[in-house]
Every structure is written in structure tokens, then in C-alpha cells.
Simulated scan of single mutants.
Amino acid sequence: MKRLILTLALPTFAVAQEASTPANPYWSDSWRGWHFYEAPASPPPVRKEAEAKRTPELQALERLQEEAKRTRAIAVMNPTVDHVRRYMEVERQIAELASAFSEVARRVAWTHPYLDPTLSGRPANAKALQVFEQQEQQDRARIVSTLAGTHVLFFFFRGDCPYCHAFAPTVAAFEKRFGLKVVPVSLDGGALPDFRTPRGDNGIARTLKVSQVPAVFLAQPFTGQIAPIGVGVLSESQLLERIAVLSGANPEVTQATTLTALPEAP
């Protein structure tokens, strides 16, 4: 009988012992030893509100922008006299601030030339613009004259094309002035007064996807590289500008093509 009572009591004692055992008993981390002190984890630093970090000017601007957005929405959805007037007052306040900023920016640009946008790039002053264009024209002419030793200009045309007849004198004059050799290529076998002995099309027009004439391409025979300059009737200044600009550009940008066979002379 005593043995039965002891047997029944053992499970109860085990359950009570398990309930009283802490979640992390000391023997599971005996490496700490009996006498240890572990400081509690420090709480994460309290971040200051973003509002406190922003400058008063930034806060004022954000409030003004929010007010403009709010009053505009109200005025649009309920356009009463008071609502529209309030929105216009906020807009006027913003315009006055922008005007004051613009005035100060002008003065800063005057006293700090490196910040003056009118002194870099294309001038705004008429006299300065004239000098700028003259210098630009001279630089472009020098570039094209340098290209004359290594490049040629392919001129695609048709003998029955009135635009080709109108453009041909400009191309011929361009060749004489800058020394850039022009290679005339006739797509229909016809000739032009300024180019009486053109070369025939050997398939180069299809390779370059020439679908309209007149068309001009800049080519470097030594490498076979050829890039489009323009289609249609162009002025001499347009030819000069495009050749000078495109000659220094990336071939991928100018859609340059490498040719293996150039048109043969007649």
C-alpha cells in the first residue's frame, strides 16, 4: 500500500518540480559562474523629432507649401469668393518670395562671375552673340578643313530630283571653300550640272538606308566609317555645324556604319 502511494506521488512531484523550474536554469549557462553581474541592455537612443532638426526657414517653407496645396484644393472643389481669395493670397506670398530670391540671385551672379549663366555657353547680349558666332564659325571651319585630309562627303541624289538640283551648288561651293572632297552618288544614273560625272550606286544606298534625297554622309575611306549628316536641302552653315559636331561624337550616337565597299569612280 505504501509503495502504491509513493508511485502515485512521484508524477505529482515531477510536475511540481517542472513548474517551479525557471525558463533558463542556471545549469544551462554555467559558464557565467555563481557570482556574475550583467548590466541590463541600454534602451535605444531617443531620436529627436525631425521637426526639431529642420531649420526655421525650411519649416516655414513646408508650411507655406502645405497651405498653398490645401487652399488650392478647397478653392477648386468649392470655388467661393473667400476660398479663391485665400488661395490667391497664398500664391501672391509665394510669388513675392520667389521675386526676392530672384533679385538676390541676380546680384550674386553680378558679383561672382563664375555663377553668372550668361557668361557660359551662348551669350544673351547681341554684340557678344555676334562675336560668339564668329568664333564658333571659325572653329568649325578649322575642324572641317582638318577633316579634309582623311574624310570625304558622300552626296546622294537623283537626276530628276528638283531639290537635289537646288542643293547641289551649295555642296559644290562647300567643297571648294573647305577642301572636303565630295563624292557624288547618283541613285538613278542621272547627273547634275555641278556633278556631271557621278558614281553609280553599288548598293551603298541600301546599306545606309537612304530612302530620301538629297542626302549627305561623312565618310572616312581608310576605316570604312560613314555617318549621316542630313537629308534634304541644307545651308552651308548647317553643313558646317553638323559635320563639325558629328565628327567628334560617339559613333553609336551618330549611327555610324562600317562599309566594306565604297562606290567606284566612273
Rank of each mutant, 00 (worst) to 15 (best):
Val108Tyr: 04
Thr118Phe: 06
Ile94Asn: 06
Val131Ile: 06
Arg86Phe: 00
Ala100Lys: 05
Ala105Ile: 13
Asp82Gln: 15
Ala105Glu: 15
Pro117Thr: 06
Arg92Asn: 15
Val76Asp: 09
Val131Ala: 10
Arg106His: 06
Ser120His: 12
Gly121Ile: 03
Thr71Lys: 02
Ser102Asp: 15
Leu119Gln: 03
Ala95Asp: 03
Gln134Ser: 13
Asn125Ile: 14
Met77Arg: 00
Arg85Ala: 05
Arg92Leu: 14
Pro79Ile: 00
Thr80Cys: 03
Leu115Phe: 01
Trp110Tyr: 08
Val84Thr: 09
Ala75Thr: 07
Phe132Arg: 04
Ile74Leu: 12
Gly121Lys: 02
Arg70Phe: 05
Arg86Ala: 13
Pro117Ile: 05
Phe101Ala: 13
Glu89Arg: 13
Met88Tyr: 07
Asp116Val: 01
Leu115Ala: 01
Met88Cys: 04
Thr111Pro: 00
Ala109Met: 11
Val90Thr: 11
Ile74Thr: 11
Gly121Asn: 02
Val81Gly: 06
Lys127His: 13
Gln130Ser: 14
Leu97Met: 00
Ala73Val: 09
Val104Gln: 07
Arg86Trp: 05
Ala126Gly: 13
Pro113Phe: 09
Ala98Glu: 15
Pro113Met: 04
Tyr87Ala: 10
Pro117Gly: 09
Ile94Cys: 04
Thr118Glu: 13
Pro117Ala: 09
